[in-house]
Computed example of a mutant assay.
Amino acid sequence: MSTAALQYAAALQETGCTLAQLEAAAAYLTGSAPLWEALCSPAVEANEKVAVLRRLPDFPGEGKLQDFLTVLARRGRFPLLPSIVAQYRQLKRREAGEGLCLLRCARDPGDQALAPVAQFLCKKHGYQAITFEIVVDPEVLGGFVLEIDGVTYDKSVRGQLQALAQSLQKG
């Protein structure tokens, strides 16, 4: 994720816009390929983008959110919108004391196996709860790889094999 997306998300959070409002507006805008392409296109003038935003039928973005989208249009930053939504989601999670953990594993471990992992991560990273985004990745071979707050915990068979290969090359 980009630093700019995080800065925009933080600025939007200051406006009091809800996550539901942002997600609804983003879904509306990205849901129509021609509209999304026009909003992201450098060939379309910023004033034309703003005019289109103001004329959209049944558009869920109003008030401060509409102003925010106008800023994105004027600065040519519409391609960042999906990243801004993801960063906003993360800010709201942190605000609620919840962490997001990407878990890559060879097979879905199930809720019972995740409970002690969540407990460890909450204690280690200071969260009250953890949400897991599970990616089944056969290349892991076994075990798992966790990514949370920029920290990677690699407890996979593949990772152990790579570490072994590196130590054999050095030794």
Rank of each mutant, 00 (worst) to 15 (best):
A129D: 08
P79W: 07
L56K: 10
Q128M: 01
V71F: 11
C101D: 07
L103I: 12
G110R: 06
G97F: 00
L103V: 12
R107V: 02
Q87Y: 01
L91Y: 06
L56E: 07
N47A: 15
P42C: 12
N47S: 15
D58K: 13
P82D: 01
V117P: 12
T30V: 11
Q119V: 12
S32V: 14
Q128I: 03
L72P: 11
A46I: 11
L53F: 04
D111Q: 10
F59W: 08
L72A: 01
Y127C: 10
T70M: 03
T30P: 00
G126V: 04
K124C: 11
F120R: 15
T131Q: 09
Y28Q: 10
L102C: 09
A96N: 02
D67F: 09
Y28P: 10
I130A: 11
L100W: 09
G61W: 04
A86F: 11
P82G: 01
L19Y: 12
V71Q: 02
A118G: 14
T70Y: 05
D108Q: 07
R107L: 00
P60D: 00
G61H: 04
Q21Y: 03
N47W: 06
A118W: 03
L80A: 04
V117E: 13
G126Y: 02
L81M: 09
L102K: 12
E98V: 15
A43W: 08
R77D: 10
K92S: 07
Y127Q: 10
K123P: 04
C101E: 06
N47C: 04
D58R: 15
A115R: 15
A118H: 03
V85D: 01
A46Y: 10
L114S: 09
W36I: 13
C122D: 06
G110L: 13
P57H: 08
E62T: 14
D108A: 11
A118E: 07
A27P: 13
R107G: 00
C122S: 14
P42R: 13
G126R: 01
A27H: 10
A25V: 08
L53H: 07
Q112W: 06
P57C: 10
L72I: 12
L91C: 05
P42V: 13
R54P: 11
A43E: 12
T30G: 07
E45F: 12
P57E: 08
P42H: 13
R54A: 14
E45Y: 09
A73F: 12
N47I: 11
A118I: 07
G99M: 06
A73H: 13
V44P: 02
A86W: 13
